[in-house]
């Protein structure tokens, strides 16, 4: 499954970091880094991260 984040929308709420800490990380300067290709075992938490994003910036593919 591919994880896309629209960085034009991302406001560093950190909801995704909270929902899926192994996939999303905030840097010291509050910019987001994420794993772009994740395994099926992470589907539930990544879907939760996408739903939790107040900016609707996260899109999942596959």
């Amino acid at each position: 499954m591919k994880v896309h984040v629209d960085m034009n929308l991302c406001q560093a709420h950190g909801e995704c970091v909270f929902a899926a800490p192994d996939v999303f990380t905030l840097h010291d300067d509050d910019t987001l880094e994420w794993v772009e290709e994740v395994g099926e075992e992470r589907r539930a938490e990544v879907e939760q991260a996408a739903q939790a994003c107040p900016m609707m910036a996260i899109r999942l593919e596959g």
């Binding site: 560093a12 950190g14 970091v17 909270f18 905030l26 010291d28 509050d30």
Partner: peptide, 12 residues
């Protein structure tokens, strides 16, 4: 204020 990553630390 302008400290998202730090807030996550507290949130946990």
């Amino acid at each position: 204020f302008n400290a998202a990553r730090r807030l996550a630390w507290y949130r946990r």
